[in-house]
Design a protein around this nucleic acid. Structure first.
Length: 100
DNA sequence: CGCTTGACACCGT
DNA sequence: AACGGTGCCAAGC
């Protein structure tokens, strides 16, 4: 089981309307490979299966998943789930954060 | 086996 | 507060 696989599983456990950070994921996995987690999501062999958009930076930013682009359509989807994203930053980030 | 990359985190300026 | 540089770890070549 690669670290990435574990990451996918964790993300899969995130309830709807909640988000998490790379750091929290790492802690839960007993690893500090925050970057490796990003690698896994970036490759994301199972895109629709894993809600990678629910994983954000520790400072409440969406990261580079697509927040820098204008086509933030998925961000709109997040809004629908109750997660507000303004210019790549999560609104009420601490409240929506899921700490496993 | 070692070097490079990356959707991060942390600290300093 | 914002920007930049540095450190960490796993995966791929």
């Amino acid at each position: 089981m690669k670290l990435a696989q574990k990451v996918y599983s964790l993300i899969n456990k995130i309830p709807k309307g909640k988000i998490t950070t790379y750091k929290e994921l790492g802690k839960r996995l007993k690893t500090k490979a925050y970057r490796a987690i990003g690698q896994a999501l970036k490759k994301n062999p199972n895109a629709p299966q894993v809600p990678c958009h629910r994983v954000v930076c520790s400072d409440g930013k969406v990261g580079g998943y697509q927040g820098k682009k204008n086509n933030s359509k998925k961000i709109g989807l997040l809004k629908k789930e109750g997660i507000i994203v303004e210019k790549g930053k999560i609104k009420d980030f601490e409240k929506k954060l899921y700490r496993f």
